[in-house]
C-alpha cells in the first residue's frame, strides 16, 4: 500500500473525486460528487452557504470520513481506511476559514511545528525555511509575534505560509478571505495568484468571484450535494447553463 501511495500513476489527475457521498445523520450534504484537479491547475468551488464546500475539502484532507465513493490522490484511493491518513495529510496543505494558527506559538513556531514533528527537519533547517516563507508572504518582521498580534490579513497569510512551508502537492483553501475586509482580501488574493503562477495545484472554496475569474482553470458550482455545473470561469460565471447557477450568481450581484 505505502509504495503505491508515494508513486501512484503518473497519468492520473493529481486529485479525482468519484461519487463522493457524505451525510450527517439524515442530512445529505454530498450526494455523489465527481471532480478532478489536474496537476498545476486551480479548481474553484462555488455554491451557496451550506452547500458542502467545506465538507468536501475536509473530506479530501481526511478530516471527515465519507459514506461512499472514492477520493484518488495520484490514482490511489485515500478514502480507504487502510491508507495511512497521516501520511496523506502530510502531502496536502489545508488552510481553514478561520485561520487556526496555534495561539500559544509564535508565528515562526507555527511554521516550523510540522516541519520538525512530521517532516523530521532539524531546528535550524526548519527555521531557515520558515523565515524564507514568511518573507515570501511579506511577514518577515512578524516571525516572533504571537497570532493575536497580527491583523486578519497577516494572520491568514501566516496560515497560508504554514501550509506552504511543508511543500504540499495540493493546497486546499477554505474561504480564506471570507473573514477579511476588502483591502486585506486583496493582500491574500495577490499571494494566491502568485502561487498559481508558480504552478501550485489548488482546490479552493470561495465566495470571491473576482478571485475565481483571476486564477481558476475550472469553476465548479456545488448545489444539492452535486457539482451542478463545471467549466472555465468564462463558461460558468458569464454564461451559466443551469437555471440554479444563474439564480446563485444573480443573487451575488445585488
Amino acid at each position: 500500500m505505502t509504495a503505491e501511495l508515494t508513486s501512484g500513476s503518473p497519468l492520473a489527475p493529481l486529485l479525482a473525486l468519484r461519487g463522493v457521498r457524505k451525510s450527517f445523520g439524515e442530512h445529505l450534504v454530498l450526494g455523489g460528487v465527481d471532480l478532478e484537479v489536474a496537476e498545476h491547475s486551480c479548481v474553484v468551488l462555488i455554491g451557496a452557504s451550506g452547500s458542502g464546500k467545506s465538507t468536501l475539502l475536509r473530506a479530501v484532507d481526511l478530516l471527515e470520513d465519507i459514506d461512499d465513493g472514492s477520493i484518488q490522490l495520484r490514482g490511489v484511493d485515500i478514502a480507504d481506511p487502510w491508507v495511512d491518513a497521516d501520511a496523506v495529510r502530510a502531502r496536502l496543505g489545508m488552510v481553514f476559514q478561520a485561520y487556526n494558527l496555534f495561539a500559544h506559538l509564535r508565528v515562526l513556531d507555527n511554521l516550523t511545528l510540522a516541519q520538525r514533528l512530521v517532516h523530521k527537519q532539524g531546528k535550524d533547517e526548519a527555521e531557515a525555511a520558515a523565515i524564507e516563507m514568511l518573507a515570501r508572504v511579506g511577514l518577515a518582521d512578524k516571525a516572533t509575534a504571537y497570532p493575536d498580534q497580527l491583523s486578519g490579513g497577516q494572520a491568514q497569510r501566516a496560515a497560508i505560509a504554514r501550509a506552504l512551508v511543508n511543500e504540499p502537492e495540493l493546497l486546499l483553501l477554505d474561504e480564506v478571505t471570507s473573514a477579511l475586509d476588502p483591502e486585506l482580501v486583496g493582500e491574500v488574493l495577490d499571494l494566491l495568484v502568485g502561487l498559481r503562477e508558480e504552478g501550485m495545484t489548488m482546490l479552493v472554496a470561495t465566495h470571491e468571484m473576482g478571485f475565481a475569474r483571476r486564477v481558476a482553470d475550472q469553476v465548479c458550482f456545488l448545489d444539492g450535494g452535486r457539482v451542478l455545473e463545471a467549466g472555465t470561469p468564462e463558461q460558468v460565471l458569464e454564461d451559466p447553463q443551469q437555471p440554479r447557477t444563474r439564480e446563485f450568481l444573480a443573487r451575488l450581484q445585488v
Binding site: P13, D34, S41, G69, L228, A230
Partner: peptide, 24 residues
C-alpha cells in the same frame, strides 16, 4: 482536465457501493 458536470441529481435511494461495503 475538466470533469463533466454531474447530470440531474440521482433520486434513487442510496445503495452502498462495493467499495463502501469493503470499507465497512
Amino acid at each position: 482536465m475538466v470533469a463533466e458536470p454531474n447530470a440531474v441529481p440521482d433520486q434513487r435511494p442510496w445503495q452502498p457501493s462495493e467499495k463502501a461495503l469493503a470499507r465497512t
